[in-house]
Design a binder for these strands. Structure first.
Lengths: 338, 338
DNA sequence: GTGAAAGCGCTAACAG
DNA sequence: CTGTTAGCGCTTTCAC
């Protein structure tokens, strides 16, 4: 910024050695009060701000963590990011955010630049089950905690909910309301989260002895137009799904849009249940029934675990946590009218 | 990460000097092809990633910019952040995000840590008109571009729309629909954006020869409960506002919630117009009439300007830009029924 | 073309 | 308590 005042300049002005300046900015205890004050005053007068870059270089830590998400404009991620940024700061960390747009290639690049920047640890909210870039990080035992999604291996650190169970809970809710013909809108199953939810759906269908119909599972483009086409599938009347389980709230909202545009009423004509409980789902004009994955708590825990990881030398420490899914019944699901 | 491989290690392995390694990772031209390849191979084999911290230290730049916003979970900011993060990466910058929770004190601290981290520049989306911390940055000619809000002085860099005009446009829309009794829901006027919009409201009221009523302006707590109380103000029937101008979309949504909970229909009973055009406002179950401030374009421009600023030594360069407000008419505003 | 050497601004022993 | 001395891992002259 202005004419680069360094600890050396401060030292000269205060008439002490540069090391002493370093001692006072680091609150080292054994500095005579009078010299401490001299230094402090010089710092004040010269507008000195310690250079964290230099500091990082020989401390081998930067006080920065990397946060990688698939889409920061998705409320799920912006809401978790808020928690992470806030609590990280309280613990003395800044956070660099990378947005991958759900591309594996971008994820790879993001990891590379973050490694280059020597972040002390990473939090990853979107990672494919078999992502090779993240696998390598794990193999290297780089301090890393995944949340929301995780790799398909156990020797890694993550905070997730039991998504199979979450899907089961969602299905049970629909079944309890009398629905039997339940369609599923799948997101990209490269993510464990979405893969597990799909499995929970399948599992429930099977356990209930319901016929499995491939045409009840949508895995096309996640746009209003695509979902409109799905809703307009030429089912026989008695085969038409009466309930739709969307693999997350964003998708559920899209589905609600599609239904609305087609004059299909929710929940009168069809019931809809989502997953995640993003804050918009609670809005009175939406009132989406959904399953909470306690995302703020998840974010908070993930950071807490990461900090543990960064503070230990035990390369074998496991810090994963599992949260419980929780159903939130609102107005988009209703009993099936006979 | 793993056992810290440095350019020195690479140099030894490749049988060249460390300086040469530096030359190849920086794509310096005058390196013999054969030695370049030797080095590249050693880098590959050893899994070497250049230490950007060391690099930053003597290049006096970090390739990192700071982004400060009032609330990253607000879609306006997460959507602009997405643009900024994406385009910054394309230009070789990472971004550290600070979330101030709209507190001036947090803003001050955020600036301090970002300065300490030696970011190459800053983008600030939320700054009070007279904020002293940011004033100091401007005085120092630190590379800084504000967007959305700005300081109340002209010798600073910003990208904003003409908010007075935007408010005028919003008011005109309501007036054209026959509304005369128009209430205004004010946000915190420490922000230029919200200050200007309030002025645009006042100005229009005056120019139209409409009576100015203090009880038409709400500047209480921005919660559903607070807005419910406002809607329940014991106005005489003929004094009851027929239209509400909310100073931004978030607030408009809260107002819609409040109205809904009170059984007040929009737009049948009251018209509502917002400001910002966040993506949720376009959702079919919301369909909020609003004024766009082209926020993605604003973010993109702000970053572009910042990059200009960071690439010049001309400390007097001014890079501000003004965008035009644009009304988006949807379903929350309707002609006044006589 | 390539090596040697001098820092970038700080922290961390090690003396005294 | 405080100064001196090495680096941290790079980039960048300046020679050869």
């Amino acid at each position: 910024m202005n004419e680069k005042v360094t600890s050396n300049d401060v030292a000269k002005k205060a008439g002490v050695s540069q090391a002493t300046v370093s001692r006072v900015i680091n609150n080292y205890s054994f500095v005579r009060e009078s010299t401490r004050e001299k230094v402090l005053q010089a710092i004040e007068e010269m507008g000195f701000t310690p250079d964290q870059v230099a500091r990082s270089l020989n401390m081998r830590k930067t006080g920065t963590i990397g946060l990688i998400v698939g889409d920061i404009s998705n409320p799920f991620f912006s809401e978790t990011a808020k928690v992470i940024i806030g609590e990280a700061r309280e613990s003395g960390f800044d956070v660099i955010i990378s947005d991958t747009d759900h591309s594996d290639q971008n994820l790879g690049k993001a990891i590379q630049t973050l490694i280059g920047k020597r972040v002390d640890g990473m939090l990853i909210g979107s990672v494919g089950r078999f992502d090779t870039n993240v696998q390598q990080l794990v193999d290297k035992r780089f301090p890393l905690v995944m949340y929301n999604t995780r790799l398909d291996r156990d020797d890694c650190n993550y905070v997730v909910i039991n998504n199979v169970k979450g899907a089961r809970v969602a299905m049970k809710h629909l079944l309890d309301l009398g629905h039997q013909k339940i369609a599923y809108i799948s997101g990209n199953t490269k993510y464990s989260t979405l893969y597990d939810r799909l499995n929970g759906y399948h599992e429930t269908i099977k356990k209930q002895g319901l016929p499995f119909r491939q045409d009840y599972v949508y895995d096309g483009e996640l746009t209003v137009a695509g979902l409109q086409r799905f809703l307009q599938t030429p089912w026989q009347d008695e085969e038409r799904p009466t309930a739709f389980f969307a693999s997350n709230d964003q998708i559920a909202l899209l589905l609600m849009e599609a239904a609305l545009s087609l004059g299909i009423r929710v929940p009168e004509d069809i019931s809809i249940i989502g997953f995640d409980n993003i804050s918009y789902s609670a809005k009175p004009f939406i009132q989406l029934t959904t399953v909470s994955q306690q995302h703020r708590r998840m974010a908070s825990l993930a950071l807490e675990k990461l900090i543990q990881l960064m503070n230990t030398d035990d390369k074998t420490l496991k810090v994963s946590a599992n949260l419980e899914p929780e159903i939130i019944v609102r107005n988009t699901s209703a009993a099936l009218e006979q």
